[in-house]
Every structure is written in structure tokens, then in C-alpha cells.
Amino acid sequence: MSDATSLRDHFLISMPHLQDRHFAQTLTYICDHSEYGAMGIIINRPAGILVHDLFEHIELDYSRVAIAPTPVFNGGPVHEDRGFVLHRNDGRKWLSTYAVTAEISLTTSMDILESLAVGEGPEQFLVALGHAGWGPGQLEQEMRDNSWLSCPANSDILFRLPAEERLQAAAASLGVNLQLLTAHAGHA
């Protein structure tokens, strides 16, 4: 798969007719996409817990810094017991980091959470439990089936907008109002 056809560093915008309980009304950031499949993180579905709740659960002391009430996200139905941190690159190295782009990385090692707990982590980050995954050709077929719209990712949408505004903001970047789209797919 060429870089021109890869959806890495793109948003997947679920179409209104997509009824899958894991992906209905979601915005997913694609971290990797190749002939072997695709992997992404849903970025607009809060898990109902905050980052400091996660720190308590994994017994990280965060008492030395004031942590804003930051949600943890349901990143997808794969490996829901694992943590994934999307963050802006700031030059620091973590034990298990994948550079999605020169600007954005995905880290899965505990050292980034330990740094966040003491106020020394990346300034812009998103913590998710689980991820979304597609086998070879699966995402391409779902795109042909009109399950998704895609657009280049935008780090302001990813890190700065409230979760409930992200889906429509990504659609608006394409000039699309999701409320005006029909919930029924059709093919001419």
C-alpha cells in the first residue's frame, strides 16, 4: 500500500447509518494502515473515568501535581485492558512508542503514565483503553461500503476540542454536516 492510499494520520468519521455498537457515532484516529490491516484509537467516546482515576487504579501517586479532570477514552474493542497514549512529540523517548507522524506518537509503556502522574509527561495527550483494529482489506471494504468518511487528521481536534465536538468538527473540515446526512446507505 502506498503512502497515498494509506489512511495513517487520518480521521475516520462514522456515517450516520453505521449501527455497530463499537463504532456508531465515533471519530477514530488512524495510527497505522498498511497491507497488513489498520489500527486506530476512537477519540470521542469517554470511558466514564478520568485519568486520575486510572492513576489510582494502577497505584500511581499523582498527589504532587494538580491534574485537570481529563477523561480516559474507550479507544476501541481490541485489547480493552491495555492503555494507549496518543501524544504530541516533544523530543522525549518512552520505552514503547510508535511515531505515527513527526508530530504525533502512540505510546503503550507505563513510563509515560508515570511521567504524566508527576506532571512531567507530554503537554498534549489522550489516554485510551483499547484500540480499533481491521484485518487486511477490511477497512478498505468498509470504506467502499460507505461506513466511513475520512479526512486528514487535525491535532487541534485531536487534543484541544472537547470530546463531544470532535466528530462534527472533523466532518465540518470536509464541509459535511452529519445531521443532514441520511441514516440509510444506498448505491447507484
Rank of each mutant, 00 (worst) to 15 (best):
M1S: 14
M1N: 08
S2Y: 05
D9H: 15
L12V: 06
P16H: 09
Q19N: 10
D20I: 05
I30G: 04
C31P: 07
D32A: 13
S34I: 00
Y36A: 09
A38K: 07
M39V: 15
G40W: 07
I42C: 09
I42W: 06
I43R: 01
G48F: 00
G48P: 03
G48H: 01
L50M: 11
V51W: 03
H52K: 14
D53S: 06
L54H: 03
E59S: 14
E59V: 08
R64Y: 04
A68H: 10
N74S: 08
G75Y: 03
G76H: 05
H79S: 12
H79V: 01
R82E: 05
G83M: 00
F84T: 04
V85Q: 04
L86D: 05
L86E: 06
K93T: 14
K93D: 09
K93N: 11
W94Y: 15
S96N: 10
V100E: 01
V100D: 01
A102P: 04
M110C: 01
E114M: 07
A117R: 12
V118N: 09
F125M: 08
P136K: 01
G137F: 13
Q138M: 11
Q138E: 15
L139Y: 07
Q141R: 14
E142C: 04
E142Q: 15
M143V: 13
S147L: 11
W148L: 06
P152Y: 03
A153I: 08
N154T: 02
I157K: 08
I157P: 08
I157F: 05
L158G: 01
L161S: 09
L161K: 15
E164I: 02
E165S: 06
E165W: 07
L167T: 09
Q168R: 06
Q168D: 11
A170E: 09
S173F: 12
V176Q: 03
L178V: 00
Q179C: 00
H184I: 13
